[in-house]
Design a protein around this nucleic acid. Structure first.
Lengths: 141, 141
DNA sequence: ATCTTCTTTAGAACTATTCTAAAGTGGTTG
DNA sequence: CAACCACTTTAGAATAGTTCTAAAGAAGAT
């Protein structure tokens, strides 16, 4: 019998996970619900784990880490490196860049068409460009 | 030729440290010698500590961390965030950007005039731009 | 020399993250 | 459905990089 899964993940998310070679387990579907249910977000593993707890979702921190990495691997998330002490995951996987407020450890999206990067040199021999990241660091003035 | 204790920078480095409000201690002077003695470099704290040990410089890891942060604070170094698992310090503090080889965890400088970033939006209210970082991530093809 | 303040240090502590190995689940097949 | 097997989850331990602590040591001023 097919048990009805909460609207959040639904069959559409399950499909995406299957396409990525990931079984649509309860934990993955519920975390996906939190991650993708409400616009573009920037979260740490700890953030997401807390949020899941608050939402009554039972999931271990290890699974949160596994899931974030698997989603990133699958191209459903993007990892943003701006702070040495923690990793942010961005639910916006389209072409865009970031402001990073160093005072409040907060990321703000900059739409992809806004910034133009010109003059990118030829990459080192034997390598190819994977991504061009622009981070604009700002502070309270 | 056998090189004795590194005299690099000698009084000049001491001067820079004093200007930054840092006493020119033996440890700071010797670490500065390693850092600034030989062109542009990208190092982790562990790297520098190992290097100091190999050079017969007696300094604790805690002091290496302290020194790297103080030098960064003083504008003698720049911290580069490209990898969630470790912090790199760049001895090149001029305007420039980086390639980051994700396969070998290696940074490569791109001179400042090479890349042009256009269309930077107005920073969030009450903040001002501190720096614009461009990281070009490359992988073995 | 003496004093005060800053600096260094070893080791403990801390934090984010990863690992382990055992129990649980999903999906398939008969 | 039942049996099966590969994948997944989990609690807790382990790890790695970094920071903290508090006591000893060095720098600079008097």
């Amino acid at each position: 019998m097919v048990r009805k899964i909460r609207e959040h993940g639904g069959e559409k998310t399950a499909e995406r996970l299957r396409d990525a070679g990931l079984r649509p387990t309860r934990q993955r579907l519920e975390l996906a619900g939190l991650l993708f249910g409400d616009g573009d977000r920037h979260l740490t593993a700890e953030n997401l784990h807390d949020e899941a707890e608050r939402a009554g979702i039972k999931v271990s921190l290890a699974t949160v880490y596994n899931t974030l990495h698997q989603f990133t691997e699958a191209g459903l998330l993007r990892q943003v490196m701006v702070d040495a002490s923690r990793s942010y995951f961005d639910t916006n996987i389209g072409n865009h860049q970031h402001f990073y407020c160093e005072d409040e450890n907060r990321l703000i999206d900059i739409p992809g068409e806004t910034i133009a990067v010109a003059g990118i040199p030829v990459p080192p021999k034997g390598t190819q460009i994977e991504r061009v990241d622009v981070v604009i660091r700002v502070r309270r003035q």
